[in-house]
């Protein structure tokens, strides 16, 4: 079976700053991949390229074997086929660092929004699934609350439920616990662990080495816009090859 996500030679610059300098990677179904690296290493940008929140200046991205069509070159590069883009995006469940739940909608409405208005699914069926998901992430009682009435941990769990409700092929997590107090991290990490154990395909940008160790099948270390090192948890943490990664892990306390 072909990889669910394939990135080929991705470059991305912001102004004169080259953030990604040619990154290729592929993710297989059921694989949990953690992207680690210091701030500015490009790991969030890489994740955001996958669903075209950032359009790479060059390189190609395939979702489930289908290449996202782009036109133009360099900074003028943009999606060529919006219908395709919208269709492929709805296969990717994105979880943001700052949650980004829609503030003007209740938790339940947030979860039901994309399935109903993007995927055009039946409302009753979606509601049922949404309520199940809220139970799964442990905030059933907050269905009718607004996001600003929830704690950060509850908001992020709601955001995970929102991502799950589009039945995504891949879950993308962009530093899902970085905006949370340490005591709220645990509740979110438990949910992510649960999803990993279910065999979902996940790409996770994280600063939390302990957690990356716990859930990942593969770890990719980004260093100044290129892949510095990659491998299984054992290889990365037990048998670190590059100096840069040793330094990074040392600073992170491993």
């Amino acid at each position: 079976m072909s990889p669910i996500i394939e990135l080929d030679n991705i470059h991305k610059s912001f102004g004169s700053l080259e953030v990604l300098k040619g990154i290729s990677l592929s993710a297989n179904r059921g694989e949990v991949i953690s992207l680690i690296g210091s701030s500015g290493s490009g790991k969030s940008t890489l994740l955001r390229c996958i669903n075209m929140l950032e359009v790479p200046n060059s390189g190609t991205i395939k979702i489930d074997g289908e290449e996202i069509l782009l036109k133009g070159s360099k900074i003028k590069r943009e999606p060529a086929n919006l219908a395709q883009l919208h269709r492929l995006r709805s296969k990717l469940g994105m979880v943001f660092q700052s949650f980004n739940l829609w503030a003007h909608k209740s938790v339940l409405e947030n979860i039901m929004e994309a399935p109903i208005h993007v995927l055009k699914r039946d409302k009753d069926e979606v509601r049922e699934q949404a309520l199940d998901l809220l139970e799964k992430v442990g905030i059933s009682e907050k269905a009718n609350a607004y996001p600003n009435q929830l704690s950060g941990g509850q908001q992020q769990r709601a955001a995970i439920a929102r991502a799950l409700c589009i039945n995504p092929d891949v879950m993308l997590f962009d530093e899902p616990t970085s905006a949370l107090d340490p005591e709220l991290e645990g509740e979110v990490l438990r949910v992510i662990k649960l999803l990993a154990d279910e065999g979902r395909t996940m790409l996770l940008v994280t600063h939390d080495m302990k957690f990356a160790k716990e859930v990942s099948d593969r770890i990719i270390f980004l260093d100044e816009g290129i892949i510095g090192e990659q491998g299984s948890v054992k290889e990365i943490f037990g048998n670190t090859k590059s100096e840069r990664l040793k330094q990074f892990l040392g600073a992170a306390g491993h």
Binding site: L53, H86, R89, M94, N100, V118
Partner: peptide, 10 residues
């Protein structure tokens, strides 16, 4: 808020 909407295929 707008990014989330885009990311979900709107």
């Amino acid at each position: 808020q707008l990014e989330a909407a885009k990311a979900y295929g709107m």
